[in-house]
Design a protein around this nucleic acid. Structure first.
Lengths: 334, 334
DNA sequence: ATCATTTGCAAAATCGATTTAGTAAAACTA
DNA sequence: TAGTTTTACTAAATCGATTTTGCAAATGAT
């Protein structure tokens, strides 16, 4: 690899002069234009590329953003990742992905690794138990933006869908279609977004003068085996016999469809279905499954914007904590 | 951040001594055990973590592997990524993901960025036009392993499914079920794996004494809009009226199911379906779609193994270029 | 003509580790 | 006891950039 020193030697200049010129400080450092031209010429000819590791060591900046997610396989992540990558690229930043696999210990380790690797900023989809680590990052003045969830009462910036309103839209849609006995299937993730979704369910029913029956809420174990969850949902639906069901997450919807298939129920005749968070499968399924779609692209864009503000790459956004609107996609399941 | 120098000061030793001890070279450098213990004690107490950037600059090693894929959203990638990450972790390596979005220019840029970031090794799912860049990496003696595809006639190590045999298994399965008029839907990616899949189709038919009719092969444009491809497949199937169809990639299968839905054909009564490369949707679909599953986990493991061999982290694998067996998953579509 | 500025660049310090070369003191040898 | 070897470290060079300080030569002011 050709180094700055090599360029200096070839151009008959000192390394400092070369650095000034190639970093656009020739005016400021009053380098003569013949000298500057010579240096640029040599650098171009030799295809000089600065050693990012050296730059990072000296400047303390890596131009890299760490993106931590629970699982890299999810479809929500997939839609986020593409946008985040291209948005970051526009600011000259690269992304390092890593997944915690919903393992707190691994999450802590990863934060440490990213920290050691001197990433300039963090985009995190937090899992339970990460609050303290994230607070440490904040104390260390590291730019952090959370996505998909957040911790109540902190000043950590976040961007996520309005979970309460999203579920409310789904439930309202069902009520408007005439369904009264509506089940809700969620999981036991101890994060705020799930609480919000449950609140969206109960409160919307109340507002429509429908009595809330706790028996109609199923809280499945998060991380449970697919088969077990499918069976759990099946027996729940068999026992409660609702007119409609709303699933609180797309994977629950996918599992739920399997349960419904098992029970040989017809959608929407025997049971209407709505799911929070869209999935390709819902579109392809026969009949199509009505779902509440998260504004993934917008979330990604806003998150990067806030982060760039924190990193002083652009001017700071006024709003650091916000919830974006979900939209309902009507298909044939309701 | 606490640095090696700080530890040295606190322990009353020189930075070099601290470095020796913390890198397990105390014997070799005959550091006295009281001194060594003191240093370890201080390092532990202060929670010292070496600055990876500095280490990387000095040693030229980053303990990072670059993983380049065409798109991060694909399900094949999702299954690969998890395994690759955990396998690499076992060797103390981290993964940087990046996606080319099937853009040759972006791919070239990314290789340069990774190179500048001093990644120790490359795992690449190559796209058309990357051959020269990959050859350059090989010339520079960089450890590279290709996945999912390869370039004929080069010595670049690769791991992928046996595409020929995989398709052959699918077609054989259809023939055994009694289907004779079998269509094949593929795309125009100019990569070897697609050629192999087409060869798998034609050759298997021939071996079973079924005449190959070029009219029964549809080559869709890769990267075409979903709707257009769906319509293209629909009119193709309407025109050819086959007893069975095999799709050469899982996204084609997904699109194809939509086409079939459009045509209001019943699976498998009106048309039997097999797809190369499994997808969650095929399991959930009613009826389930028979597919040929790639051994994604094995591919990931073997790729990492070869790469570690190249990087001299473990002893070199004997075989550097290999194709793994696909397995057929029988569902109700055939 | 003399002193003060400005110009144009180079020297050297720095980031935080690793690694080679060097060096007192202790131990051993003859 | 003088010379050699071993022990137990430390000093300094190094990786490749950035950035502060320094310093002749040219220019300007009086």
């Amino acid at each position: 690899m050709v180094s700055l020193k090599d360029i200096a030697k070839q151009a008959g200049a000192s390394p400092s002069t070369v650095s000034f010129v190639l970093n656009g400080k020739e005016k400021e450092m009053r380098i003569s234009s013949p000298m500057a031209e010579k240096i640029k010429e040599v650098a171009r000819k030799e295809g000089y590329q600065p050693n990012r590791v050296a730059v990072s060591l000296r400047t303390g900046k890596s131009k890299i953003i760490g993106l931590m997610v629970d699982t890299i396989a999810g479809s929500f992540f997939a839609s986020l990742a593409r946008i985040i990558e291209s948005e970051a690229d526009a600011f000259g930043y690269k992304i390092i992905y890593c997944s915690t696999g919903n393992d707190v210990v691994k999450g802590k380790e990863l934060i440490r690794t990213l920290h050691q690797s001197h990433v300039d900023g963090y985009l995190i989809i937090p899992t339970a138990g990460m609050e303290s680590d994230i607070n440490k990052l904040m104390e260390a003045k590291k730019p952090v933006v959370l996505m998909d969830s957040y911790f109540a009462g902190t000043t950590v910036p976040y961007v996520l869908v309005n979970n309460f309103d999203g579920v409310s839209k789904g439930i309202t849609h069902l009520i408007n279609k005439g369904y009264k006995k509506i089940c809700f299937v969620c999981n036991d993730i101890p994060l705020i977004q799930m609480k919000e979704r449950i609140r969206g369910y109960t409160q919307t029913l109340q507002e429509n003068n429908i009595e809330v029956n706790k028996q109609l809420i199923l809280e499945t174990k998060y991380g449970g085996k697919r088969e077990e969850v499918v069976n759990e949902i099946a027996s729940f639906l068999a026992a409660t016999k609702p007119q409609a069901v709303m699933f609180a997450a797309n994977y629950l919807g996918v599992y739920g469809l399997e349960s419904i298939k098992q029970l040989q129920l017809k959608i929407p005749e025997d049971i209407a279905v709505v799911c929070f968070d869209d999935h390709e499968i819902f579109n392809l399924h026969h009949p199509g499954i009505t779902s509440v779609k998260q504004p993934a692209e917008e979330i990604a864009k806003v998150a990067i914007d806030i982060l760039m503000g924190e990193m002083k790459v652009k001017k700071k956004s006024k709003q650091q904590q916000l919830q974006l609107e979900a939209t309902i996609i009507e298909r044939s399941s309701t």
